[in-house]
Amino acid sequence: MKRIPQSMALAAAIVVGIVVVWAANHFGLWWVTALVGVAIGVAFRGTLKILGVASLVAVAAWGLDLAFQSLSQPLGAAATTVAGIMGFGQVGAIVVALALVFAWLLGAAGAWVGAAARRAVHTFGRRSAPLTSRA
């Protein structure tokens, strides 16, 4: 059986991850971002790669969704309103940044858990290459 090239696998993971996170968010399932991160952590090797892909998926899924919505709705005004309620004055960018940072934390922390789980399994005797060797 032919192996799927690593770059294609990564691209597919990014696209699928973004779609899954995007869709889940529209059902209120914000924590799926972390699950997708876990899946990426389990599926790929290389700490930086895993963190990079998971972060990209999380931030892109949340950020593109917001950007897309802002084409038809006053999302900037919504951010400003929320900033005002939170006591950040009229700086809506803080709320957008907070959303993206939170998405990144979910994705990255999920990926860390996935990678750590894979490493633990390997360390305790399962067949797998050392995670750090491909970094």
Partner: peptide, 12 residues
Amino acid sequence: LNPGTGVWTVAG
């Protein structure tokens, strides 16, 4: 903060 059902719906 999630884009689907978070505070952003205030706009729509």
